[in-house]
Design a protein around this nucleic acid. Structure first.
Lengths: 345, 345
DNA sequence: TTGTAGGCGTTATCAC
DNA sequence: GTGATAACGCCTACAA
């Protein structure tokens, strides 16, 4: 069963193809006036035939696909879903589609997305995480990209290397808050579980962690900082190692809530109670964080909003490719719940 | 900066457009032989110019977009993400893209996907969950759809209403196992938290729950069955209600692991220990289930495999639209971990 | 082995 | 106001 095309509609309505096109879109632009009667005839024919414009042809002709790409670092972390949610909400409202790709699925820099956009399938791209910065090769690709494609970054720094639009929100201040919080609870040995898919993703926590400790006159002990991967198991193993140190830390900062679930599990295995024996702070405030036992003390970004703003920015750049670079910053803050308490004696 | 097209490549290589096309695709079919030398010239030109075929034009011409749709019921449940993962893995390998849509994002039957396919943007569609069956209107839409579009269902029943390919896996047997497990632990009051986005999604647990209890000579008490929504908070509230009943159940079955997290939280709030005071069984075996405290006793489907098989089936149907209906069944089973134990006295 | 020509369904530019 | 006609970039008979 073949689908009806504009030609069929035109025939059915007794007009030409061009007229059909005008009747359907031209009106919106207020450009081409169409007589009310023809309009109705066309619309009628459209309905009778169940005609739907072919997006592919439209895209080919108009150059725009009404689709944007979104690259996230790790599809298994709920944190990034929320972000995608925000982008999607806004995109949907604007009539755009979302092509989601995750770095851990397609390791070589979201290969598929890049291929897609090379085939002009997307009108713009939102990148999450400055980790793209790491490799020189990626730098090149990106610089190259920026010339052909509207790009927005959701980042943890306002001024990355590229001259591109950015919606930023970092955990620097929140980390200072967190350390201050732990210090005020008399913690002096504070471990850090640094498990992300790329090192750069953790800079905004690693740095202030060290700074704050130094500022408090505490030593930075390498054995207290564990780098690992981004999975639950990674968090679990890292915590196991950390908590079996000769002198156990009394508090642990895990770099995200997902890892924290692994930490809680490790604490359980070692018969440590949280927060009585061990305090735990993490980041992201994923929906689950407030339902775990204990509820997590965690830092939060308004991640939904971040996504929405990123899309708005992208849309603006699509509309006006030469506008000046935009930047936006949203603060994060610490939410104290139940996983932190006074250090054991 | 305009992108290079086939014409540019042809000019650069000193051949005609057709030759370029043959050099790039014809070879695969073994149809059109091309001299090695020309091939190299073309490939060289492609590389120099950084030419990438325009997928839109290819799609328009060939009628195929190499993209399939996937509709999942609830984007916030990790369980469905894993499923999508399976589909994506297989799809990627076959050079297909995935357009993901979730019922809770676009309530009217994955509106976007349907629009996409109307605009011929997808070559096939995978549906998750027989819940689509519910409304008569949806029935119609679907029957209509099946005529134009390869369709595969990932379902909990082998024989749905439509004559369409299906990859099935239900929790019937696993539920019987679960109840038997609980009964053997001396539980006699077993609550059920039935929180899904659509009632039909729970049939394979609700039914055997009742059957098994009856078979064991136990009454079906309506107050022990709570229906609620699919979110963490829903699970939490439902559990709170259930656990504050005049005569408390000693065991609870939550219809999925996400809800279970809410249940654990509620138990915590009421100072009930799991499994000492309360046993908990759930379903899906999301990655987190094995890291929660306590680790969840839960039923598992090989959900990754389900996704992969579904895609393979879809691909086969795309290739051969009139092949006989295919069905596949994969069993689920119960994994006993730490959240179940002997009933308190 | 390679080139020519026509068409996929739309939209934009002209005349009428 | 409306109707031809030419692109958009690619694929594929068919002819050379």
């Amino acid at each position: 069963m073949k689908r009806p095309t504009q030609v069929d509609v035109a025939r059915r309505a007794g007009v030409s193809r061009a007229t059909v096109s005008y009747a359907l879109n031209g009106r919106a632009n207020g450009q081409m006036p169409i007589s009310e009667e023809t309009l109705q005839r066309v619309l009628g024919a459209v309905k009778e035939l169940g005609y739907e414009p072919d997006v592919r042809a439209q895209a080919l002709r108009s150059g725009s696909t009404k689709t944007i790409g979104l690259i996230i670092p790790d599809i298994h972390n709920p944190h990034f879903w929320e972000n995608a949610d925000g982008v999607e909400q806004e995109a949907r409202a604007a009539g755009y589609h979302l092509l989601l790709s995750s770095m851990d699925l397609s390791p070589e820099y979201g290969g598929d997305i890049f291929k897609d956009l090379a085939g002009r399938r997307i009108d713009g791209l939102i990148l999450m995480g400055t980790f793209i910065n790491q490799a020189a090769e990626a730098q090149n690709t990106l610089a190259h990209l920026k010339r052909r494609l509207p790009l927005v970054e959701i980042s943890d720094r306002l001024n990355g290397n590229y001259d591109m639009d950015v919606v930023a929100s970092d955990y620097r201040e929140a980390t200072k808050e967190a350390i201050a919080h732990l210090l005020s609870l008399q913690h002096r040995r504070i471990g850090l579980i640094c498990g992300v898919s790329a090192r750069e993703l953790a800079e905004d926590r690693l740095q202030p962690y060290q700074d704050s400790l130094r500022a408090a006159g505490l030593p930075i002990e390498p054995e207290l900082i564990i780098e690992c991967g981004p999975t639950l198991e990674d968090g679990y193993q890292a915590a196991l190692k950390l908590l079996q140190l000769p002198v156990r830390p009394t508090a642990v900062i895990a770099i995200n809530d997902l890892l924290s679930i692994g930490v809680l599990r490790a604490a359980g295995d070692l018969h440590l109670r949280v927060p009585a024996d061990l305090s735990l702070v993490s980041y992201d405030d994923i929906p689950m964080a407030n339902y775990l036992v204990p509820r997590l003390t965690t830092a939060t970004k308004d991640v939904l909003r971040l996504g929405r703003e990123a899309f708005k920015m992208l849309l603006a750049r699509i509309a006006e490719p030469d506008r000046p670079r935009q930047r936006d910053y949203f603060p994060a803050r610490l939410i104290v719940r139940e996983s932190t308490g006074p250090a054991p004696l």
